[in-house]
């Protein structure tokens, strides 16, 4: 950094050189901001400087981790015993429910097979830990300790034990940033479990609520209704709890109902989360089965026909690939 010293702090008036330099730097900053807004330079820069940036994140996350482990180390023995007891009970309950569900799941799989749709009950997940780092975005984002090296990709849904938390936004080699569903610029397609009404839940300014701003006036929405992911848009798999409606009121325009919901996930408290691996089912009808013709050895031996058939099959599989895997980012 150049250290120039050509002004000696005048008592009452500044000189023009300082002002000019300020204007220069401000212009440079503005250019950087515009370029970053357009091209996302910040993340490219972080990507290239990952070797420096990531250890700093780990270092900054140490106090939070330290407090966490301290509370575990010096925690009341009784408190820990109680917690253990409670977890055991929870596990027992969950296992009992799972056993009950197993039969239903099997039945579901069987029915789906009959209907020839894909099975969506298998859950491919990856456990990740939240790194306690302040990302300067007012609680709308969290950082995880897994990254591109662990196979994380932007757009992956993130859940905790209670519901959907958000989606992966940016990925560095060993860390990744998650955009929470409460971020004002995040939207998630939901369905109201009781009435089946589909709508979209946006984040809100306060950072601990969801807003559903465009529900039709005649729609049946009540306080306490559960919101599930609808799976539309293909980013979040259907059927995960998103939140619970806490208030419903007509919008100021009088054209819609506006509902507020509290997220189901423990957004401020979770320290371990699950990353889903490409769970979303493709939209649209399932791909038709490959045409089954007579066995190959019965075919007349002409290379031209074979080649044409091969081309046709390729084209068919290409057109049937799901096309709408786009995210629901506003």
């Amino acid at each position: 950094m150049a250290r120039t010293r050509d002004e000696s702090s005048p008592l009452f008036a500044g000189n023009a050189a300082g002002t000019l330099r300020l204007i220069g730097y401000l212009a440079l900053a503005l250019v950087l901001m515009v370029l970053d807004q357009r091209n996302g330079w910040l993340w490219r820069m972080r990507d290239t400087a990952a070797a420096v940036v990531e250890p700093v994140y780990r270092l900054a996350g140490l106090p939070a981790a330290g407090i966490h482990s301290l509370s575990a180390a010096f925690g009341d023995r009784q408190q820990l015993t109680e917690q253990n007891q409670r977890l055991r009970q929870d596990l027992l309950l969950a296992n009992a429910k799972l056993n009950q569900m197993a039969a239903v799941a099997q039945q579901n799989a069987h029915l789906k097979e009959l209907l020839d749709t894909r099975n969506s009950l298998g859950l491919k997940v990856q456990l990740a830990r939240v790194v306690g780092v302040d990302l300067g975005a007012y609680r709308y984002r969290i950082m995880l300790n897994v990254g591109a090296r662990d196979g994380v990709k932007p757009g992956q849904p993130v859940i905790d034990a209670h519901g959907v938390m958000g989606q992966v936004r940016d990925v560095l080699p060993t860390t990744s940033v998650v955009m929470l569903i409460t971020d004002p610029s995040h939207a998630i397609p939901v369905v109201i479990a009781r009435s089946g009404l589909r709508t979209v839940a946006y984040g809100s300014r306060e950072g601990d609520q969801l807003t559903l701003p465009n529900i039709p006036l005649v729609a049946d929405v009540r306080v306490g209704d559960q919101l599930l992911t609808s799976g539309i848009g293909g980013r979040f798999p259907p059927g995960f709890p998103v939140g619970r409606v806490i208030s419903v009121a007509p919008a100021s325009t009088g054209m819609f109902l506006v509902a507020q919901a509290r997220p189901a996930a423990d957004i401020n408290r979770s320290d371990e989360v699950l990353l889903l691996h490409d769970q979303a089912e493709p939209e649209g009808p399932p791909a038709p089965a490959a045409p089954v013709g007579p066995p190959r050895d019965l075919a007349p031996v002409t290379a031209a026909i074979d080649a044409r058939r091969g081309n046709a099959a390729q084209a068919a599989s290409a057109t049937n690939r799901p096309s709408s895997n786009e995210g629901m980012r506003r």
């Binding site: 250290r3 300020l22 730097y25 900053a29 910040l42 300067g136």
Partner: peptide, 22 residues
């Protein structure tokens, strides 16, 4: 100097910025 402030700001942006240069 202003240059130092700019440099520190850029570093801060790289670590926890929403927008580079802010």
């Amino acid at each position: 100097t202003l240059g130092l402030a700019f440099g520190v700001g850029l570093l801060a942006d790289m670590f926890n910025g929403v927008l580079l240069g802010e």
